[in-house]
Design a protein around this nucleic acid. Structure first.
Length: 472
DNA sequence: TTTTGAGTTGTTCGA
DNA sequence: GTCGAACAACTCAAA
């Protein structure tokens, strides 16, 4: 065993249940943690996550100090940084896997470099319940339908979990390893967009564990009923923490399995973890879906290019209050309620017929919980081009969705306050209120709030027709 | 190889 | 107001 261990961190910014970190502290005298910030992967692509990452690294650095572990942050390309380590440095290197093809590529490259240079390098299971290679059909090929995938996963492997959580050991000494470390502040974007987020989130491991515990204690039993209503805090909101690895999915799983009365809410929630597993399986088995349609016939879909519409959608100015509320929540908080994610995605794809990739890109940039697997799989699911996808004729009616899931308009008005004094029965289709009444209450559609950028009925018909054209 | 049944989250229309 | 069927046909999984 070498004296020093280096733990290469990526999406595992935690102490509890961190296999690589735990292994390092159990087997080495000195452990240094490394995070390499690669600007190219964030600039203009994942702006919202810069802030989350900054906060997370700051907090983790502090937390690791207690164990005498230095967290060193470098600027550059992780493969390059790691490839510069020479074998005369008496060092072993560990990392937890990240299940994205681009990260897997890095792992392979680094692994072969260390192999050639005779440096001890070990990868541990990442933030997933089951390695995607393990859940396959009897013939060895991957599943393309969720239900059998999840049934199989639960039956064959999940009874092995929870495995025991790993712990890290406090070390006697620390040592700095890299010379060219940077101040973590360097990660923060130049504009002040992220300042909004500080009101809504506290990105740390402590907070992640707390939120998860409280959700399981107080909310999970009702989850099945409340999760669809965006004005209720019925969902766990754990996704950004899960993405950055401030909590491991096994920790969540373990805590869920300790619930005494496992009711419907529990089942529903566990299922969502299952969808996360399924998405990871999909993008790793079918990496081509990161770039284009999984179902090839969708390559013929007559997408519309319309920057004015796309822009209105992004800004929350489509004239459909529930859609605009969702889009504004996203921009303001870096997060959007799941029900709204479906509504706004359906609107972009089916009402505007703009390519799902545009929506995927926007979500990627704005979501603090952006996760490549979930994002791409869900966008393709809505489009109908993905695995086990929604049928094409399932087109969300924005005002019906609004009336159904935001009955009192609380959520809508929170994000679209300009309609505050609008009569409730017209809140989801304000353009239907007679002009003279609009003037009476001094909220004129087209002046104080946009007119709908497309008409629901005709947009719906156009979408149905576009899907017809895919048929042979 | 063939057959059978099933497949996250909806909407509209007509009885 | 409520209810069931139609909206299409196909692919996937498993027997």
């Amino acid at each position: 065993m070498t004296k020093i261990a280096l733990v290469w961190l990526r999406e595992d910014l935690r102490i509890k249940d961190n296999a690589a970190l735990s292994y390092a502290t159990q087997n080495h005298e000195i452990v240094t943690a490394l995070y390499v910030y690669n600007k190219i992967e964030f600039d203009g692509k994942r702006e919202a996550q810069k802030w989350w990452l900054f906060k997370s690294l700051k907090n983790l650095q502090k937390d690791l100090k207690v164990y005498n572990i230095n967290l060193e942050v470098l600027l550059g390309d992780d493969v390059e940084v790691l490839a510069n380590i020479k074998n005369n440095q008496d060092i072993s290197i560990y990392a937890n896997k990240v299940y994205e093809p681009s990260q897997k590529y890095k792992e392979t490259k680094i692994s072969s470099h260390f192999n050639v240079n005779k440096i001890n390098f070990k990868l541990f299971k990442g933030n997933i319940l089951i390695e995607y290679q393990e859940v396959v059909k009897d013939d060895g090929t991957p599943f393309k339908v969720f239900t059998p995938f999840w049934k199989n996963a639960e039956q064959r492997y999940l009874n092995k979990i929870p495995s025991k959580p790993t712990n890290i050991k406090k070390l006697k000494n620390s040592k700095s390893f890299f010379k060219n470390t940077i101040q973590i502040e360097k990660i923060l974007p130049k504009n002040n967009w992220y300042k909004k987020f500080e009101k809504y989130w506290m990105p740390s491991e402590t907070e992640a564990l707390k939120i998860s515990k409280e959700f399981i204690k107080n909310k999970i039993s009702q989850y099945g009923d409340t999760r669809d209503y965006p004005n209720i805090e019925g969902t766990s909101k754990i996704s950004p923490y899960l993405k950055h690895g401030q909590i491991s999915v096994e920790t969540i799983w373990r805590e869920c399995s300790e619930i005494k009365n496992k009711g419907k809410g529990y089942r529903k929630y566990i299922n969502e973890l299952g969808w996360r597993e399924f998405s990871h399986s999909l993008i790793n088995n079918f990496p081509e879906m990161l770039k284009g349609n999984l179902r090839k016939e969708f390559d013929r879909f007559p997408w519309v290019k319309n920057n004015k519409h796309l822009d209105a959608w992004k800004k929350g100015m489509t004239g459909y209050p529930i859609v605009d509320a969702g889009m504004r929540e996203l921009y303001e908080t870096g997060w959007m309620h799941n029900r709204l994610r479906m509504v706004v995605a359906s609107f972009l794809i089916k009402h505007l017929r703009i390519h799902w990739r545009e929506g995927e890109k926007h979500f990627r940039n704005c979501l603090v919980d952006f996760n490549e697997a979930n994002n791409v799989a869900q966008w393709q699911w809505v489009a109908g081009s993905g695995a086990d996808a929604a049928p094409y004729f399932r087109i969300f009616n924005p005002f019906l969705q609004g009336e159904k899931f935001d009955k009192n308009g609380e959520y809508t008005l929170k994000w679209v306050p300009e309609l505050k004094n609008f009569p409730k029965e017209y809140l989801q289709k304000p353009w239907e209120l007679e002009k003279k009444y609009q003037e009476q209450i001094n909220i004129v559609i087209g002046r104080d709030y946009p007119s709908p950028i497309v008409n629901h009925e005709s947009a719906r018909n156009a979408a149905l027709q576009a899907f017809q054209s895919l048929k042979k």
